[in-house]
Amino acid sequence: MNEPLMSTNAAPVTVIDKPLVHRSLWSDALRRFRRNRLAMLGVAILFLLLFMAVFADVLAPYDFDRVFFTRRASTLPFTFPEHPLGLDGSSRDYLTRLIYGARTSMFVGIAVPTIAFLIGIPLGAISGYWGGRVDFLIQRVVDVMTAVPPLLFTIFLLSVMGSGVGNVIFALAITSWIEPTRLARAQFLTYRDREFVTAARALAAGDWRIILLHILPNAISPLLVAFTLAIPLAIFAEAGLSFLGIGITEPTPSWGKMVGSGIGSSIRVYYHLAMFPTILVALTMLGFSFVGDGLQEALDPSRSTR
């Protein structure tokens, strides 16, 4: 995979023809990705969910916090044509809540990995590139953070700070920067002593230039895969926390919370409360992991998981 890059880099004077190199690498990956049927199914699912999330206000028939006082709570689906999926425990339209739930999930799912990677990649890069005392320090922090089970720590943080979308994102980001840091560190460690870096250094490239322009482009594909795989984890974590009742607060809809309040003694009667959000969470998780696995196979065929 790195052959063309390395050979162009090794030639001392030629300017690297970046766009060309990149296009062939990425278009190769794209072709492999397109051939992967599961991955394409994943993309379709994700498009659907993103569409729901972005156009929630247009798609949803009502406001997500509108209570229908004249209707019985937890009305079953298909009883009233104006509420096709029934009503929830507080007599709110369930279809509306489900659609808006996509927005919450996607928001948390994208915000958390973004923050985590914005912290993790620089830390990992510094740690792996320079090594020494900085590396030691960062690694000890990572050690301490890994000692505490992440889920417990997140729950603990939320109990300290209180629930809500912002706090959920914050608490999840605090525990999820570790993985990108490790990954970036490992990547920078392997590339630090490669020939193309030595060559760049011989050309008097500064440390930051080497980090940003020479190593990072090479290290980006595993990080990208990790990013796609981190999204469903964040969504799962949010759903899980809300399920336990310490995540998203009312009236913001969250699928996890909906499953949580749907499970209970009334599940045999009001099956819809738990069933619909369950299906949606399952679809989301499947979609993201199909895409993540597909990306992994496309970008790094030698290390495919199967």
Binding site: A239, F243, G256, I263, A274, M275, A282, M285, L286
Partner: peptide, 8 residues
């Protein structure tokens, strides 16, 4: 799939 989804 998350645990609680399978459980449900």
């Amino acid at each position: 799939l998350p645990n609680f989804i399978i459980a449900t």
